[in-house]
Design a protein around this nucleic acid. Structure first.
Lengths: 200, 200, 200, 200
DNA sequence: TATGAATGAGAGTTCATTCAT
DNA sequence: TATGAATGAACTCTCATTCAT
């Protein structure tokens, strides 16, 4: 109960301010609990951060897993990946901010959590994806020959839609509203690019 | 002299730790100067951050301007943008970390600086780019019909190569070394994707 | 049952860390009980400390009483006091640490407990000792003419064997192992000193 | 200046409350400085404690060195040691409290400091003392045959005069005022005991 | 320009103690 | 008796910033 409230408040706080910018007292206040409880449950600010990050990562993974079926076709993959990512993130902005900051910090905690979680839960990674991509490459379904580059392209386009907007706006000297239509357009643009650019 | 040293040290520090994580004393130490001097020159930590960010932004802009010639063709654009971006950023990692953090913070300072700088220097934006893209669209050189989405795609793919690596690695359960070859492959993969996906 | 376990654990803890250094949670853990129980039984940390101290003092007193018989001779006294003290303390190190700390704190709690205990139990002090010493002085059995100084000498030599070792070691730049032989030698040295120095 | 004031205040505080009981804020207040200055100069409470302890130890050593001359006779030694110790400590009560607590804590910090200081300053120990005692033993000046036990006896009697008083008082059920006469008597009693007990 | 000393506000964390059950 | 959750006050320590020189 209290633990949940702390996690929720912490997610908000870490998203907005990052690990070092976050304030334990602010988290406690948001959660409506005594500051000491936070340490009672999580023993340190950093540990709380890790717990939040763990949730975030598991959320990300579960999104990816959702679309993976053994007979998935490349064309579907290029349609569904951006759609799922962008829809999910547009509703979970904290999520992407936390991940973003984490990645910029060289993913130190991210990697640690992945390691820990693997030890506990066995497979966290959607192991199927690797084989799927390899199949598509061998099948001749797609042009891109490196599974890594392919994955980078997909992920980049999806996640960066939530971060890179100000840069594109500035370059073009325009202002784009971030609404339903914006996301719909991004999804379409990305999946077109992926399909046209990587399908054979 | 001292001012330069401070800026250099600050760039490193802000890149590694972000605005709130950065330590004024560490910057002073790195710069080999007394902490008080830092305030003498920059009056506050935040102001120092803005100075660093201004340099960073100007650096980014200058990279973009480099390739813009009035008769640039779309195909060249799709080749040169990723190349210039990735080559530049691979040599200026601090750069991208600072921009990344800034963007996650909703680009608050970024926008402020753009505004200020516009007032001082007139055009900061490479105004030509807008017209170029519109020309390509009208010419029928490219498929993508939104200049904004096009720009987002390009920027996403380029910048995210430096941030998103851990995610792709984790999804595929592999480990990629970040070296010359890595960058070469990324450039190639991206420009292929852009050309195949957006050229007619 | 639980009460006993708490007292035992507390003795250890207070011996090692002192009143202010001791941690209630550590005591509870050592005792294998819930922290709240500790307050249920002892109502406060300080009160628990006093309980431990009371045990300690009673232990000390009972040691002294052991050797007191009305016809005890001074020479026996000088032999038995160091022996009993040192043997007892070597097996109850916590004991001496607690007393030592207490004495350094000007014996605040010590005195309070003595007072309280006197009120409850009547005589705590081995009242005989005073008369014995006076008898020896009058008899001409011993040289020392002040019962207080005599007692101080005995107690000092006995207790300090457990505390002052590092100082003597450092002054002489040697290292002495604290084992059976060590204690045997201390007892012998002390009782020789006392007998030679105070017997007529 | 401030550093000196902090050290003085800290000595008082550590003497009264011990390392764990001491309060940094109280030290700062006593010293009339800002709490942060304490960390500016000493970086941590523990480090401040070590600095105080170092002073204390050096003070102790210097007292011992004072009486050591190559032609010192055992009888003089037994007279001067208690005199110097007791006179010094009666004027420096903080001193003995700090040392006392430290010794009860197994001399952890004490030993560390001795080690460090030896590395820096070469000889800290009054090296002569060892040889002196051995000479007296060989000469047949004294009865006690172990230099260690001899030293223990001397140190015990001297230092414990400031700690053990409540115990002796309680055993004898008397109250002794701690004044000039008290100290004079202790010195006399101790040196008589030592001379009678250890000289041949 | 340059420095070492100083400061106040607040950071994360700990701890004895109490509450509800 | 027993527990896990909760609390408030206090603690050590840090940090951006300023002052005196």
């Amino acid at each position: 109960m209290s633990k949940e409230k702390i996690l929720t408040a912490a997610k908000e706080e870490f998203a907005e301010f990052g690990l070092s910018g976050a304030r334990v007292s602010r988290i406690a206040e948001k959660a409506g609990i005594n500051k000491a409880m936070l340490f009672y449950y999580f023993s340190s600010k950093e540990n709380l951060y890790k717990s939040v990050l763990r949730q975030t990562i598991l959320g990300l993974m579960s999104q990816i897993k959702k679309i993976l079926t053994p007979d998935l076709k490349a064309s579907e993959f290029f349609e569904k990946m951006p759609e799922i990512y962008i829809n999910y993130f547009s509703k979970n902005k904290d999520f992407i901010k936390i991940m973003g900051r984490e990645l910029i910090n060289d993913g130190k905690h991210y990697k640690a959590i992945i390691r820990e979680t693997l030890e506990e839960d066995g497979r966290l990674t959607p192991s199927g994806i690797k084989e799927l991509i390899n199949k598509w490459i061998k099948n001749g379904e797609i042009k891109e020959e490196s599974q890594f580059n392919m994955m980078m392209n997909i992920v980049s386009l999806s996640l960066f839609s939530f971060i890179g907007k100000p840069i594109a706006e500035n370059i073009l000297d325009i202002n784009i509203k971030e609404d339903e239509i914006f996301y719909k357009n991004r999804i379409e643009s990305i999946s077109n690019l992926l399909k046209r650019g990587m399908l054979k």
